[in-house]
Design a protein around this nucleic acid. Sequence first.
DNA 1: GTAGTCTGACAACGTTCGTTGTCAACCGCG
DNA 2: CGCGGTTGACAACGAACGTTGTCAGACTAC
Lengths: 210, 210
Amino acid sequence: MPGSGAYRGIGADERRAQRRRLLIDSALDCLHQDGLAAVSVRSVCAQARLTARYFYENFADLDALLLAAVDTVLEEVADTALAAVVAAPPEVAARVRAAIDAGYGVVVSDRRKATALLVAGAGHGPMRERRRRMIIDFADVMIQNIALLRQAGLPDRAELRASALFVMGGSAEVIEAVLSGRLRMSRARVVDQLTALWLGALDAPSTTGG
Amino acid sequence: MPGSGAYRGIGADERRAQRRRLLIDSALDCLHQDGLAAVSVRSVCAQARLTARYFYENFADLDALLLAAVDTVLEEVADTALAAVVAAPPEVAARVRAAIDAGYGVVVSDRRKATALLVAGAGHGPMRERRRRMIIDFADVMIQNIALLRQAGLPDRAELRASALFVMGGSAEVIEAVLSGRLRMSRARVVDQLTALWLGALDAPSTTGG
DNA sequence: GTAGTCTGACAACGTTCGTTGTCAACCGCG
DNA sequence: CGCGGTTGACAACGAACGTTGTCAGACTAC
């Protein structure tokens, strides 16, 4: 057979993967530039300089692409933050700070990712579902770490989970405000204050008691 | 002239206002039932059993209706919370608790309002703008009250504002989780813990110092 | 009753969308 | 070279949308 799939020196699978990444990247572009409503098969393909055929080659529909896009960002944030935590000193404050600094670094270095997580993801059913599940997972990791570090006087699981959700939602709001320019703070101050707020929130429930 | 505007015993202005309220209510229904994407001139009018003409009689376009809907809810939450604060004992904890309890009461008694504020509002440009401006206003009220009650050792304005944004975003996340059933807590416990988290967050920045 | 307004149902126009299909030009390989 | 897979441009279909217009019937005021 003449063609074994290779084209311009690249195998068929690799070309497909390239187009898939390109489509996800273009989706982030469209999302950031003109909002969720402006993301369509046509607009994404135009941004990627691809044809609709290659869209359907990689994704069943628009929702699948949007989910893949937000998943990519979520994964990057989670991996970066987790790596930073592992590399940080064992004190809880240092670890919290490391996680916040790492996560903030990802979205501050590419605003499109912040848009995908903080803005557009909230208004779209499947994307919101993804984001909330990631927040739950994040919360559970947090709970485990906190539980290990404060063996005495733990509030029950629901309260811990509520606290974890609280710090995630609050951080999203603060980060969005900073990135949009409404709140002017240096990166160091953002990280410092978020760290303080996290630690305060994780201590607050036990101060109230039951 | 035969017709001075009255119809079925109701003046023209009042009929118009009734239709306007009905359209806003129908918009909340559509938003809650099928999400932001399902809100269209046709769907809202069908829900309201009105014709498109009466839509354009009251609103320039869909965005105007959505803004009016979210404004209505925001106003109700703000008024209710403010009234509760005024009626509460002067201690800061009691006032915070009263505000949270009142605001939570509004959205828990009508889930459509929660959807409008917490879910759909986030993914829509103009609605998000409205929501964020309301959060800023709320934050400023909070800052004023806190500043009056803790005259010593105030963090600067940016940090206070960040804290206020933090508690608003965090509360939204927790309330959404509770209302969606992912987080099972009684109303009393939700209010208790949110109060504790608010107070903790408003104290946290000063513990870090600058 | 009669004129004038209000109401509701529906048609119609142009636009955008998702999705599929067609077709010439391009490229690697024998 | 020539064969077959690959690519890109574009047409085409039905559906939904925003928006405006038409028109018969219900109602009010004189």
